[in-house]
């Protein structure tokens, strides 16, 4: 996994609530193995009109937002399907951090498992940031994982937290499975115990 320490990038405001992972990556792309590129997949249908043309009223189709490295979204970002392709498509589009008042649970984990930082900030803070980004297109935001702070375009900082274990893995770019296998003895001990304490589980 790629390390994440701090990121300063152009941020794009996504005003809509409940952006589900079906919108982030429509079903036809789920056939694509993760070893292949997910570039150009993000919001594939949302970006386009019925005739396949790029819509000019979709914010990510316009400069400078087409180069955004951070999204400031609304409540329940990434709700719905567990498809990890949503995180792969975000990373492929150069987005390494999403700031929102709340996330779909599974997608939240998927982001962290792909070197991304999902930042939960209060609704008012997200609203404020989006207003600034609309007013000043191309404005940058900094997400600092070390200090767990976000700095908005106006210099205001907001504190956030993410689970300490995920933070540690992100800061060090550690593979989760390797870390877990350090507890191999404990897993084996649990298994040995479980066969006895819940023998009904093993017909």
């Amino acid at each position: 996994m790629e390390k994440f320490t701090t990121l300063t990038a152009v941020a794009a405001p996504l005003d809509k609530a409940n952006i589900d992972t079906d919108q982030l990556v429509p079903a036809p792309f789920l056939r694509r193995p993760r070893s292949e590129s997910f570039e150009g997949v993000l919001f594939y249908r949302v970006r386009r009109n019925a005739d396949g043309e790029m819509r000019d009223d979709f914010i990510l189709n316009k400069a400078p937002f087409d180069k955004a490295g951070i999204f400031v979204a609304n409540r329940n970002f990434g709700c719905g399907s567990s498809r990890e392709a949503a995180a792969w498509a975000l990373v492929a589009a150069g987005v390494r951090a999403v700031i929102a008042p709340s996330f779909g649970d599974i997608h939240y984990n998927n982001e962290m498992n792909n070197g991304m930082v999902p930042v939960i900030l209060p609704v008012e803070a997200c609203d404020e940031l989006r207003v600034q980004l609309h007013a000043d297109p191309g404005a940058e935001i900094t997400v600092d994982l070390e200090t767990q702070t976000v700095t908005g375009p106006d210099g205001r900082t907001y504190a956030f937290t993410i689970p300490a274990f995920n933070r540690y893995r992100l800061l060090n770019g550690l593979d989760e499975i390797d870390v877990t296998l350090e507890s191999d003895a404990e897993i084996a001990a649990y298994e040995a115990r479980r066969v006895k304490t819940a023998d009904w589980l093993f017909p």
Partner: peptide
């Protein structure tokens, strides 16, 4: 798969996970 919550109807703790987590469960059962 996100609809794994279904299985909770029997009194189980059941939930959906992403592809990286699937690989993690495959490798470690945890």
């Amino acid at each position: 798969d996100s609809h794994t919550a279904t299985h909770g109807a029997l009194g189980a703790f059941a939930f959906g996970i992403g592809a990286s987590e699937v690989a993690h469960v495959m490798a470690t059962q945890t």
